[in-house]
């Protein structure tokens, strides 16, 4: 089994399996509000393959990061 690492989601530390994407980590933690649409709706991943941009979150201060394409790293700061 893969090892666990710790990332922070909106300030809360969560333990996740290494090797998974940020999108999977968030979904696994039952976080379904990834981004807020331009009219204020909550949105979550749709395509799972980097095309739709619905899974965007802020990672280590970088906005508009597509979480379905990025693997988790120890100490990563994720803001939805």
């Amino acid at each position: 089994m893969a090892e666990c690492i710790v990332i922070r989601v909106n300030g809360h530390a969560i333990s996740v399996r290494d090797g998974i994407t940020v999108a999977v980590a968030l979904l696994q933690a039952d976080e379904l509000h990834f981004r807020t649409s331009v009219t204020g709706e909550p949105r979550a991943p749709l395509c799972g393959m980097g095309i739709c941009f619905e899974c965007r979150v802020t990672i280590n201060g970088h906005t508009h990061a597509r979480s379905c394409q990025i693997l988790v790293r120890e100490g990563m700061q994720v803001v939805t």
């Binding site: 696994q28 509000h33 395509c47 799972g48």
Partner: peptide, 27 residues
């Protein structure tokens, strides 16, 4: 994807999309 009322709700995935997420570790 064809738009229908509610298709933007979190939890509505592409079929291939959900499979891709599952293959990348989503339980």
């Amino acid at each position: 994807f064809l738009p229908f009322p509610g298709w933007t709700l979190p939890g509505v995935f592409g079929a291939g999309g959900l499979q891709a997420l599952a293959k990348s570790g989503l339980s």
